[in-house]
């Protein structure tokens, strides 16, 4: 399995509206709900917030990876959102985040999915990958960036 298998065009939003942390999390959860990947929007939002309270998932370098593991998740899913203005996410480096990957994992998820997400997390530590994600003009070219890096 590859990252691109998890990331269909419906799960990509290159122009997030939100301007603060809570609303961007809500916006991303909404995408999962619209695609019918979670059984309860409210519940999953709570899980995501609880994870943020533990420690921020804004890992710096403009990247944030809010994630949650819960029984309300139907199957492992990935959402990508981008905000060119940047959103204050309480990141490690105290700079705004522009690239958002929201990861939703069910309880007892298959290892295969988790490995893909691990692979994505590793990729995000590389500057050229991040720059390519920032520069992608549309959904199609974004998917191409991801495919090229698999």
């Amino acid at each position: 399995m590859k990252i691109s298998n998890l990331l269909a065009p419906d799960f990509i939003n290159l122009d997030l509206n939100s301007t603060d942390k809570e609303s961007v999390l809500e916006e991303l959860v909404h995408i999962l709900d619209d695609a019918n990947k979670i059984t309860s929007k409210e519940e999953f939002y709570k899980v995501i917030l609880a994870r943020e309270e533990l420690s921020t998932t804004g890992v710096g370098n403009q990247v944030a990876i809010p994630h949650g593991k819960s029984s309300v998740v139907k199957e492992a899913s990935l959402v990508f959102g981008r905000s060119d203005k940047g959103i204050d996410f309480g990141s490690f480096d105290e700079k705004p985040a522009k690239l958002f990957f929201m990861i939703a994992v069910p309880e007892g998820s298959s290892d295969e999915h988790l490995k893909v997400l691990a692979q994505l997390s590793r990729k995000l530590m590389h500057e050229d990958f991040r720059n390519a994600l920032l520069k992608a003009k549309d959904t199609e070219s974004l998917l191409k960036v991801i495919k090229d890096n698999e």
Binding site: T57, V105, L114, S121, R122, L124, M125
Partner: peptide
């Protein structure tokens, strides 16, 4: 890390 899906691997890669 607590959830074990992202930070663990980012830290390893870093």
């Amino acid at each position: 890390c607590p959830t074990g899906v992202a930070h663990t691997y980012m830290a390893a890669e870093a």
